[in-house]
Design a protein around this nucleic acid. Structure first.
Lengths: 210, 210
DNA sequence: GTCTATATGTCGATAGAC
DNA sequence: GTCTATCGACATATAGAC
């Protein structure tokens, strides 16, 4: 709170501005996709001018790559926090770790920006620069579950499959349409179980500020 | 083979041209996404001029909606063909139907256009016109598995989860990168099992004509 | 049924002032 | 550290000829 009211734009450190832009970009890229998002939309969401976004990150592609990196890093950090708390014993994960990792994942993808940035990566396999990064990130997640948590390939496969279904249900915004069709509640309850109420609330909240 | 060589563009019936455009659009939308694809790229892929694509479908959005519809319809047709062959007995699906439905799904999403059009729909939940269509298509699939095939909600959930993982692995083009990292083969073998060789071949073939 | 030409708008990126 | 102004490159859609 330095001055009572600014008539001109506030000057803040570059590092902090960077974070604001990345946060805004995560949301905008998530909603509109890489190609569909414009640097101007991101700039507005961050409260600055469009050329400044470009100036900071060089190109739109660079900005997206940083957003994708951040999302992948947050995922790795969240999983490792759970694993550190419940490390494998003689190479075998203790009972209940899978459920805790699943819960951590749901908490993470409630941030729609993270969820959709990750999914944008998945569908960009063909892209010569985004594709390789997305593959590396996915494999890193696999390795964490397999080598650090100690799960078998079969268990990891099931875990990832569940995650991908949850991704899809949230990306589709099905929790928003839960009253349109009884089947919606049925599949959501089955996929999210005790987290059902949470995802309904969060999805509704996200709809409001959109 | 009506004439030896055309100097001008061939005139073919509108209905047939429509199909050509839809097939081309499926591929292009799949690779570049809805926003990233241009009507000109689609036109070139179909061997006609850009304005003719627009003339036929009115807008790019309409064209995408038809592509998405077609993909969803092909999925429903494929599943119903399997169910007709092995209908539920006393409301319970016979042994092995799940595996056959899974195989039918893999066969379907080997068409990368179909796979990625469906996935483009999933990540377009926020879009006021594409979103609702994508949700309806997803729920239609759920209902076919639940009501027509006779599976329990829990089984359908697992089936859909497996499908979403396969979607992701194929969209990421991981079969292409199978030699880059031992973990890649491990997760692919686990997810696709006996279909592994097939998806490796198909992905490689698709890479060539891209 | 299909094309060429083009209007109209938008976007990413650069230049340069403050 | 941040803006305004603007260029040049597309992209969608329309008009109208053949």
């Amino acid at each position: 709170m330095s001055s009572v009211s600014e008539t001109t734009t506030e000057r803040i450190p570059a590092a902090e501005r960077r974070e604001q832009i990345l946060a805004a970009a995560s949301r905008v890229f998530g909603e509109r996709g890489y190609a569909g998002a414009t640097t101007d939309q991101i700039a507005r969401a961050a409260g600055i001018s469009q050329p400044y976004v470009v100036r900071m990150f060089g190109t739109k592609e660079n900005l997206f790559l940083e957003v994708l990196d951040r999302a992948q890093i947050k995922l790795a950090v969240a999983f490792r926090a759970v694993i550190a708390e419940f490390p494998p014993v003689d190479g075998v994960p203790p009972e209940g770790v899978g459920a805790r990792l699943g819960a951590a994942y749901v908490d993470l993808i409630e941030d729609r920006g993270i969820l959709l940035s990750l999914m944008q990566g998945f569908i960009s396999g063909h892209d010569p620069v985004i594709g390789p990064r997305a593959r590396v990130g996915f494999l890193a997640t696999y390795r964490i579950l397999r080598d650090e948590a100690g799960f078998s390939p079969e268990y990891v496969r099931g875990f990832l499959a569940d995650g991908m279904l949850m991704n899809t249900l949230l990306a589709l915004q099905l929790p928003d349409a839960i009253d349109d069709d009884p089947a919606t509640r049925e599949i959501l309850a089955c996929a999210f179980q005790s987290k059902l109420d949470l995802v309904i609330d969060v999805t509704a909240a996200q709809k409001e500020d959109a």
